[in-house]
Design a protein around this nucleic acid. Structure first.
Length: 289
DNA sequence: GAGACGTGGGT
DNA sequence: TACCCAAGTCT
């Protein structure tokens, strides 16, 4: 079962015109885009990425700015510690790698905020290295097309990476487009709900379709906790207040953000622990750096 | 290794 | 209206 030829042909004819796919797009741009794309949709990333790269065209440029600027420029992309990680990553690249984004997976993995997915994505999309890239889209496409399941099991590198590796052709360009194409297919066609099998290039070889599209059987997928009233919401509100202030905010001003004291204290303590907030009750709180 | 971690658009 | 989901990482 090899899905690569159909995926590559489909990808070359149907891929979206995304900034990071343009000729000459720098490795640094790919790295920034991958940070922003960690759990944030493409359409929300594109404008923020353009502003970011205009302001900080190289890792050294970002490294020379304070982390607070990174958190503010991150705006409302969500998971703001990614902004902190990205800044720390720029510092590490500047100080330890001569300002050049590394191209090998182990070195990339050693950088803050870069995990199994992002390391491989940068190696493949910025440098054309032949390694498997596995994200949530890839896991879903492989589960269906290759394994005949409705949904993938929980992420498992020991399972997922060899499975994608087994689909990569030898040719570098084809391997690149297989990685990008399976992701793209999962993002546009083989989506989680209501997959568009009618326009899928794999429909006549998809193990799941050929099996009659059986229901999901394995363990139920993890569900997200409610956001309203959660600590995450409180953290978000506190951070929004801090982003908007040049001089920091007082403990009293934070009471207005979230009156309930126990949860407010817990959220603030978490932000301080994460390094997203500095200061204290006496002198007030502000963004780091 | 299960759970924490933002935000907003689609259905 | 609620709920689902999004190119994950870290602890």
């Amino acid at each position: 079962m090899t899905i690569s030829p159909a995926v590559v042909a489909w990808y070359r004819a149907n891929k979206r015109d995304l900034p990071w796919r343009h000729e000459g797009f720098p490795a640094w741009g790919t790295l920034v885009s991958e940070f922003m794309l960690q759990q944030t949709p493409v359409v929300r990333v594109i404008p923020r990425l353009a502003e970011w790269l205009e302001r900080w065209p190289t890792p050294a440029d970002l490294a020379s700015s304070p982390p607070s600027d990174a958190v503010r420029a991150w705006d409302r992309l969500g998971y703001p510690r990614r902004a902190l990680n990205l800044h720390a990553c720029a510092v590490a690249i500047t100080d330890e790698h001569d300002g050049v984004v590394p191209s090998d997976v182990p070195t990339l993995l050693s950088l803050p905020g870069i995990g199994d997915y992002t390391a491989r994505a940068i190696a493949v999309f910025a440098y054309g290295v032949r390694v498997p890239v596995v994200d949530t889209n890839v896991r879903r496409v492989l589960a269906r097309a290759v394994e005949g399941r409705a949904l993938p099991g929980p992420p498992n590198a020991k399972h997922d990476l060899p499975l994608m590796e087994s689909q990569l052709p030898d040719d570098l360009s084809d391997a690149h487009d297989t990685n990008a194409g399976v992701m793209e297919l999962g993002a546009l066609v083989c989506v989680a709900r209501n997959p568009r099998c009618d326009v899928c290039p794999l429909v006549d070889q998809c193990a799941w379709v050929l099996a009659g599209r059986p229901e999901h059987d394995g363990p139920p997928p993890r569900t997200q906790k409610k956001y309203e009233g959660s600590d995450r919401q409180v953290r978000g509100l506190i951070l929004a207040e801090l982003r908007a202030s040049d001089v920091g905010v007082t403990a009293a001003e934070l009471e207005a953000v979230w009156p309930e004291p126990v949860q407010r204290a817990r959220a603030l303590a978490g932000l301080l622990r994460d390094g997203l907030v500095t200061g204290g009750p006496v002198d007030g709180y502000q963004l780091p750096g």
